[in-house]
């Protein structure tokens, strides 16, 4: 008879839980978070099209991407998010607000990805690449 659990199952499940917890805890902390200003970096089909410093958004505003389907990105002082997308599943919108370095949201049908990156002390490298 097929058993649901055997010894190796527990081992692999516990190590997977620990690994992913560790990864979640490490995200947004140094060395992944260099501190400094947050930038919302917008990629369309793998190409970076804009890097917006969140601190520049004194008043929140929206960006429309002319992709197909189109998406609406909201930039605010402390966060960025997908406000809307012309697709069916709305996974990117449901991802919610991106608030810390390393947070990302993606609209796959449109090929649009938003990633929050910290500039670090130099504040140059993120603009330079």
């Amino acid at each position: 008879m097929d058993k649901i659990f055997r010894k190796c199952d527990a081992l692999i499940i516990i190590s997977l839980i620990l690994l992913s917890m560790l990864a979640l805890a490490a995200a947004g902390k140094p060395p992944f978070n260099k501190g400094g200003d947050l930038y919302a970096v917008i990629y369309v089909n793998g190409k970076e099209i804009e890097a917006i410093p969140l601190s520049s958004a004194e008043i929140g505003y929206e960006i429309n991407t002319d992709t197909s389907p189109s998406t609406v990105i909201r930039i605010e002082k402390n966060c960025a998010c997908f406000l809307n997308a012309e697709c069916r599943d709305k996974i990117c919108v449901n991802t919610g607000n991106l608030t810390k370095s390393g947070d990302a949201a993606a609209c796959l049908p449109a090929g649009v990805v938003i990633v929050l990156k910290s500039a670090g002390k130099s504040k140059v490298d993120i603009i330079a690449y």
Binding site: L16, S20, M21, A23, Y43, G46, A104, V113, V115
Partner: peptide
């Protein structure tokens, strides 16, 4: 492949937790 952005893998830990 679709987005060309490696950052989609940042989603993996929470997916794994739910996948378990």
């Amino acid at each position: 492949v679709l987005t060309g952005s490696i950052y989609v893998f940042g989603y993996l830990p929470s997916l794994i937790l739910f996948g378990i």
